[in-house]
Structure formats: structure tokens, C-alpha cells
Design a protein around this nucleic acid. Sequence first.
DNA 1: CCTCCACAGGAAGCGCAGGAGT
DNA 2: ACTCCTGCGCTTCCTGTGGAGG
Length: 436
Amino acid sequence: MFIEENAESLMDKNVEDLLSKELSDRRIFLDKRVLSPHYVPKELPHREKEITDVTRTIAPVLRNEKPSNLFIYGKTGTGKTCVVKYVMRKLNEFVQDPKKNINNAVVRSVYVNCKIRDSKYKVLLKVLEDPSLNDPTLKDVPLKDRAHSKGLMGIEPSELYDRLFNVVEKNGMNLIIILDEIDMVRKGLDDLMYILTRINDDLSSGNVSIIGMSNDMRVMRRMDPRSKSTLCEEEMIFKPYNALQLRSILKQRVEKGFQPGVIDDAIISRIAAFAAQDGDARYALRLLQKAGEIAVEKNSSKVLQEHVEEAKKRVEEDIIAEAISTLPEHHQVVLYALSLLVSCGGFYRRLNDVGDGDFLTGEVYEAYENCCKKLGLRPRTTRQFSDYINELEMLGLIITRSSGKGQRGNTRFIRLGYSPKEVKKIVEKSLGISTI
DNA sequence: CCTCCACAGGAAGCGCAGGAGT
DNA sequence: ACTCCTGCGCTTCCTGTGGAGG
């Protein structure tokens, strides 16, 4: 009885907290949505040239001609996605207007985030499942009913091709496929490029063009030269924003997202300076939002410098924690093994006499095997392990360099990208284990 | 020079999960 | 309920590579 009452009052308190938080939220924030990385504002400062270039590239669709494929490279938070979405929105508005769309061009664009659709098959499915392709004149629309399902297996790839072909052909459609984070397509990227370009040879009306985006130049090295040249008919590079540009971007969002007078210019400059190291606008916005949240938390009527400092710390922790805890189990075990190695690595250091925190592939594999044993997992083979290492490096969670002089042959030095203590803590929490 | 070591990473194939068709 | 088919993660087998040591 007593406990129940306690629990109830605890719950009451939670609800009350939430409600009052909502109110205090309003003291700082005006509209949190404009701070989201997915928000595409009406004006995109400092990307005017990029917008014209993208527009020029895709404009031929208005004459029912196939535009060049476009590859956009730029680090995270340089506005790639934003610019492309922006142009697509404008294009869509233009096409909707019968007065402007004098050729009656049927234009559709499908946005695919390859981080989620990470294989050729999933990308094709996503394109076909897109509501804008689901033309009611098509009898063959069985995909629509299953749009909610997790995925469609058991359909032959050639059938996927046929369906895509039919949709485009029957509508004389100018289809623009936007492949964001194209470097995340692990399986069959070359194949995908081949399919999406070859379709144009078979089509008697309509066309398919591709806009690929990536923040990793290495994707080009992995690609077949032929699919590389088809994708890169046009190439663009988005440069990182400088502190000044970030400041005006932040100002724009502050005006819409925050109550007036809550954030001083000095605060904006500070956030811009932090984010300018990578020229990353997304990071800047995240800092801005977090600083605001901390101000709410601290019951402050304004956002202060100390809130920004705190926000920086928390955002960085969040980013790492999110990256690690969404990883598959064995990837996390590899990180865990590495973090343990660092904290008790003296023995290995004496043996190998290399930089502190650097370990050879063999050592890390051995540690990984041990961790698996203690966690009751079956260790994967070295071959698989090698892929884990590559994937972890791609995510920046570990840093590898190939062994130079003084070490035997063709191996790599592996080190953690972040503090081992922190990595250890995150993995333990994520996998629900206690220190081995 | 050759050979060995310790590894990187390509190719093939296997078993599984799960949707489609019957 | 059943088979058939697919993608996917994985293992097995294999070839390539660069320094160390003979």
C-alpha cells in the first residue's frame, strides 16, 4: 500500500514535470522543428551557386530529356541533402503549374537514404514503394498494399526491373532517383548503377537519372570505372561552411526557432566557431538545440556560454553513444575488446614496442575471441573480423594504419578513435554486460 | 635472390529467415 | 502447410602483398 502510494506520487511527479517542462520549453523555444536536420528552410544561405548548378543539371527534364547523372561530394553538414531537396521541391512546384510546365512533363523524384537501404535490392524496393510512383492508371500495384511490411523478399531482381521499367515507360516519366549516402550501399552498387543506367536504353519514353551523394570519397575507389563514369557525368563538391557562414545560418534558424532575445549574438558566434572546425552545419544546429534544452533544464531565461560548453560535451557523447549502440553485437564486442586491451595493454606493449594504444590485428582478434568466450558468443572467423575492422574504421570509431617499418609484413595497427573508458561504458550499457 | 610470416581481401558456397505462390 | 526463391551473414578456400630473415 505504502509502496503503491509512493509509486503513484512518483508518477504524478513525472507527469507534472513533463507538463511544466513543456511550458518552460516555450520560454526558450518558439518552434523546435526548424532546428531539426530534416528541416529544409525557404532560404538556403551560402548555397546559391550550388542550387543553380543542381537546377541547371536537372532542368532538361522539363523538355522530357534525360539530364546528366550527378554526383555530389561533401562532408557531413555541408548542405548536400538540403540543396537537393530544396531544388526538388522547387522543381515539383514548377511542374505542378500547368502555365509553367508547357511540355506537360511528368517529373518524379524519389529520395533514398542508402544508410537505411544499404543494398541494391533495398534501394530498388524503396524506389518502387514510393507513393509518387504509384500511379492509379497502373493495374499492377500490389506493392502499395505492402508498403508497411518490413520488406519484400522473394521477388526476382529482374521483376523489380520490369516493374520500374513499366512505371516509367507507361507514364513517360522523368524519374530522378536521389541516392543519399551512396557509400553505404555495401552490396551491388555497381550492379545498381548498371541497372539504373541501362534502363534508359530500353525505354521508348521517359528516362531515369541519378543524383548520388556521399561524404566519403573512398566510395569512388570502390566502384567499377564504368559505373563511376556513368554516375559522374556531372560532379559537384560542396565545401564546408566557414564560421561566418555558419553564423548567418544559425541566425536564420534562431529567429524562427527561439523566442526573441533568448540568444545573444555572442552565443551564436561561439557555436559557429565550434562547428567551423568541420564546417558542419548539422552539428552547429544540434549544438544550438542542445544549448537551448540545457537552458530550459537550468531554468534560465537566456542561453548562456556555459550552456554551450555543456551542450558541446553532451552532443559529442551522444554522437558516439548512438554510433556504437546501434552497431551489431559483434562489432560492439570488437570495440569492447579493444577498449579492454588499451586499459590492460602493458604486456602487449612490451612485446611489440609500438605507439601507445596501437594494436596489431592479431592481438585484437585474440582479445575479441576471449571476449566472445566470456560472453558466451561464438567468435567469428578472421575473415569476418577483417570486415568488422573495415566497417568500424569507416564509421570513424577506430583508426587503422598499415604497419610500416619495424613490423612484420602486411598488417595494420588498430587504435580506438575515442576514449576507451567511454567506449567500454557505452558497450556495457548497450549489451547489458558488466565488466569482464 | 627466395621463403616465410602475418595478414588483406576476393570468390564461392552454405544455412537461415522470410515473402510469394500453391 | 508446403515448397520455392531470395538476400544476407557467415565460413572456407584461396591469392596477393610487403617486410624480415636466410
